[in-house]
Design a protein around this nucleic acid. Structure first.
Length: 476
DNA sequence: TAGCTCGTTGGACAA
DNA sequence: TTTGTCCAACGAGCT
């Protein structure tokens, strides 16, 4: 009987998992997770490790219900580990779901070649994206570089495959296979903030489906209207599940479309459009691998970004900038490993256009602290906000965090949730506490500079500095 | 081919 | 309070 190794990575689920599904149909199955040195462009971020740990525990439990366990292996390079496993269980095939970040694409090609040369059958399946970056191209045969035409094309032409069911049964390999302990991978010890993550997130395939269902029934209809307001529960919170593959994008796609009958199509279309941004990020990265390191608009390679992690950097990461909306966002990130998208833009704009730090420093911090850290989304969005990416926000568009705060959190509900020290502030002053008269401060029980910091730099003036630098750069 | 339109997420200012 | 215009310029993508 044939034996197939299923190599898991960012597809940690049993439903709509084509590699697992087809392997189970084929014969005996060995599900494997490999944590090798060649895992991709970056080492895993610390919060992502926590998420991964939880996901793997959950996947293992699900597989156990089928009577098979998840084998965990570490090593220097993946291909050696796989070759070893092939020998151990006399596997004649290795299946996995395609990955799209450029270093993984290169590695997977290498792995494929080596395995085939040993006479092992290799099959790769699609489920990580809705589209194949090679197949959606403009009429001139080039990759898309602007989102809207890309989205129109995707919506019109891409036939999203229906999600596959979970395998009915999975037959194990029948021999004992050594597995390393999940605890020994070092995913938890270096990480000290698990407590609030544990409270906030349920990490499993079922939790992903449940979360999505709740969003679809309660928030989808108003999504277009509510998504921009961080004090509302208006977004799906599905991103970390997508990033690790506890749910697939086509499961999301069909759940949303299926539940949309009777609901405003505006909410549905707006949400599908958001989902398409994930596609677009991978489209861009797949065709422009250098964007991981370099600003796409090359003029920005000469921009005088700050590169050293100074006190300003520390205050930004700690949520002690003195601008409440920014600090609320950065503290939410610290506590639960997630930040509302609107606030991500505000803190990133402040970081790159007021503090003038290189977008890469911010991108790295997000990478390390987000449960939904995803290489393509992270890099694309940071370059977009910084104004140096493909189809970005124009550089001269500097967000004014105070105006953003007043517009999207008028009563300061979101601010107060994450900054309890400002709880007693009247909403008139909660966006800029430094303007509060002394009696207001007294009543709120806040001494500025002690209980809550003064703004680290002047808001409007710092925005103008960035513009000046940019203008000068263009003249040279 | 050449020309036309448009660009996820803004802000200042005027009316 | 709300709405419209301009800001600077360019290149993608369509017709």
């Amino acid at each position: 009987m044939s034996v197939t190794i299923v190599w898991f990575w960012n597809d940690l689920r049993v439903s709509d998992n084509p590699a697992l599904y087809h392997a189970a149909k084929r014969g005996r199955v060995l599900p494997v997770f490999i944590y090798a040195e060649d895992i991709g462009v970056r080492k895993l971020g610390s919060v992502k490790k926590w998420w991964l740990y939880k996901s793997l525990v959950s996947l293992n439990e699900t597989l156990k219900k089928y009577g098979v366990g998840l084998v965990i292996r570490t090593g220097f390079d993946t291909v050696s580990v796989l070759k070893e496993l092939v020998r151990e269980v006399k596997a004649d095939a290795v299946y996995w779901n395609r990955r799209f970040d450029p270093t993984m694409v290169a590695r997977d090609e290498r792995v494929k070649k080596e395995l085939i040369s040993l006479g092992v059958k290799v099959e790769c399946f699609d489920s990580f994206l809705l589209h194949d970056p090679n197949e959606i191209l403009t009429s001139t045969g080039k990759p898309y570089a602007v989102f809207t035409p890309f989205w129109k094309r995707l919506r019109k032409d891409v036939n999203v495959p229906r999600p596959l069911p979970s395998p009915e049964r999975i037959q194990g390999v029948g021999v004992r296979v050594r597995s390393e302990k999940l605890e020994d991978l070092g995913f938890l010890p270096e990480f000290k903030r698990c407590e609030s993550l544990e409270e906030f997130w349920k990490v499993s395939e079922d939790a992903a489906r449940e979360r999505l269902r709740r969003f679809v029934t309660s928030s989808l209809e108003g999504y277009e209207r509510d998504r921009d307001f961080p004090y509302l529960d208006g977004t799906s919170l599905i991103s970390p599940y997508l990033a690790s593959g506890l749910i697939s994008p086509r499961q999301v796609w069909y759940e949303v479309i299926g539940a949309s009958e009777g609901k405003s199509s505006k909410g549905v279309e707006a949400f599908l459009r958001s989902l398409a941004w994930r596609e677009f990020s991978y489209h861009l990265l797949y065709h422009n691998p250098s964007m991981l390191e370099k600003s796409v608009k090359s003029i920005f390679e000469r921009f005088p970004w700050r590169l050293e992690k100074s006190e300003f950097y520390e205050r930004w990461t700690a949520g002690l900038t003195g601008i409440p909306i920014i600090d609320a966002g950065m503290r939410q990130l610290r506590k639960v490993g997630w930040m509302h998208n609107r606030v991500r833009m505000i803190v990133a704009s402040w970081f790159t256009k007021n503090l003038l730090f290189h977008w890469k420093l911010g991108e790295e911090w997000f990478w390390d602290t987000l449960v939904d850290a995803d290489i393509a989304n992270n890099v694309q969005n940071w370059q977009w906000v910084a104004g140096c990416g493909i189809d970005p926000v124009p550089f001269f568009r500097v967000f004014n965090p105070i105006l953003q705060s007043r517009k999207f959190d008028p009563k300061g509900v979101y601010i107060k949730k994450w900054l309890p020290e400002l709880e007693k502030f009247p909403s008139e002053y909660v966006h800029e506490p430094w303007k509060a008269p002394l009696p207001v401060l007294k009543r709120a029980g806040v001494e500025l500079g002690k209980d809550y910091p003064l703004p680290m730099i002047p808001v409007e003036e710092s925005g103008r500095t960035a513009l000046e630098l940019y203008k000068r750069l263009r003249k040279d």
